[in-house]
């Protein structure tokens, strides 16, 4: 009897799938929901809150894209992925885009056939140690036991860094950030290494964050960004320019608060093009004119999203640093909307 339920579900699933096999954009529109891959839980970047709602910096990107495409920032199905499953999930079409603090590297872009649509967080790998260990530099870590998340670039950077400095270490591979926490806190490893943003986020969840220090060394470049499958350029454009819209919005001073009024008041043509009151940018993307307006309306511009999720006022307390606008000396530099 139950066999047939399964078959039935399969049939239904098959029918649903058969309906749509065109580009990702059409798929998403037909489905009415954006499938967005995120981490299984990293406070500040993507984690379900007490009500089971996903919150975070990466989550905000997903919501912005959903708002731009579907008109509803909540029309997102968040798919938690691990370091192991994230790429297969994307390659197999289980998710439409991946926003899982994923480092943009050559081999992922070229060999794994993905398309990184930009950088939403410029990061670097760092080390966190308990303060009472008395370590002030990563170069003092010879012989230490290090917890690393497997399947990440940090694993390779770590091997390179220790080899380059002629130091030895004992790697303890961990599947998720959640599993790393107890190991590190109970002292089963001396050092926890991952992206600095991840370290800050992890530390923020500790009972006594002050007992742990993040060492000054940054051993790698970790540009984190959303990515999509290779080959569907239309879809890639939408994700890329949604992210750029958020960045540009901050640059030109469009916020979620003045969003409705600024288009009428401003003389800045780029704002008008961005918000769709001038030009046909939305149409070129295959969307309507107000796509960017909706994207910004969900969680605000890049700066607002940053401040709300990982900024200095949050538990994570990340400074803007490299992630400031280029005009402020940071690396955020969106191509013009023209």
């Amino acid at each position: 009897m139950k066999k047939s339920v399964l078959l039935g579900t399969l049939t239904v699933a098959g029918l649903a799938a058969g309906a749509a096999a065109a580009g990702t954009l059409d798929d998403v529109k037909a489905r009415g929901v954006l499938n967005c891959g995120v981490t299984t839980g990293l406070v500040g970047f993507a984690a379900p809150d007490a009500n089971g709602e996903w919150q975070g910096f990466d989550v905000a990107v997903c919501r912005a894209v959903a708002a731009a495409v579907l008109g509803d920032g909540n029309a997102v199905e968040f798919v938690p992925t691990t370091g192991k499953t994230r790429f297969t999930a994307l390659a197999s079409g289980e998710i439409d885009m991946l926003a899982r603090n994923t480092t943009w590297t050559f081999s992922r872009d070229v060999d794994l056939k993905f398309e990184f649509t930009g950088v939403n967080y410029y990061d670097g790998q760092g080390f966190m140690v308990p303060a009472d260990l008395g370590v002030s530099s990563a170069l003092e870590l010879d012989g230490a036991t290090v917890c690393i998340q497997t399947g990440t670039t940090t694993e390779l950077n770590l091997a390179d860094y220790f080899a380059a400095n002629g130091m030895s270490y004992e790697p303890v591979p961990i599947e998720t950030n959640a599993e790393a926490q107890p190991l590190y806190l109970e002292g089963a490893c001396d050092v926890y290494t991952t992206d600095r943003s991840g370290l800050l986020a992890t530390r923020a969840a500790f009972e006594n964050p002050g007992d742990h220090v993040v060492l000054p060394e940054i051993v790698s470049k970790e540009p984190l960004g959303p990515l999509v499958r290779h080959g569907d350029n239309d879809w890639g454009d939408i994700v890329r320019w949604t992210l750029n819209a958020l960045i540009t919005a901050e640059e030109v001073g469009v916020t979620s608060e003045n969003l409705d009024t600024i288009a009428g008041e401003t003389k800045n043509a780029e704002i008008k093009r961005l918000l769709g009151t001038e030009g046909t940018l939305g149409e070129m993307l295959g969307l309507d004119a107000e796509w960017a307006k909706r994207a910004i309306a969900v969680g605000g511009n890049y700066g607002e999203i940053f401040d709300a999720n990982i900024g200095p006022d949050t538990a994570i307390g990340a400074e803007r640093g490299y992630n400031a606008q280029w005009v402020d000396g940071g690396l955020l530099y969106s191509p013009p909307f023209r």
Partner: peptide, 29 residues
């Protein structure tokens, strides 16, 4: 084809790049 990938075991010959803590034979990154 859609993903532009192929099936090949050539990756087995590439340097691994990661360290393993417990190794019974000589192994480095």
């Amino acid at each position: 084809q859609a993903a532009g990938l192929n099936i090949s075991f050539g990756f087995l010959g590439d340097p691994a790049g990661y360290d393993i803590n417990q190794r019974l034979i000589e192994y480095s990154k």
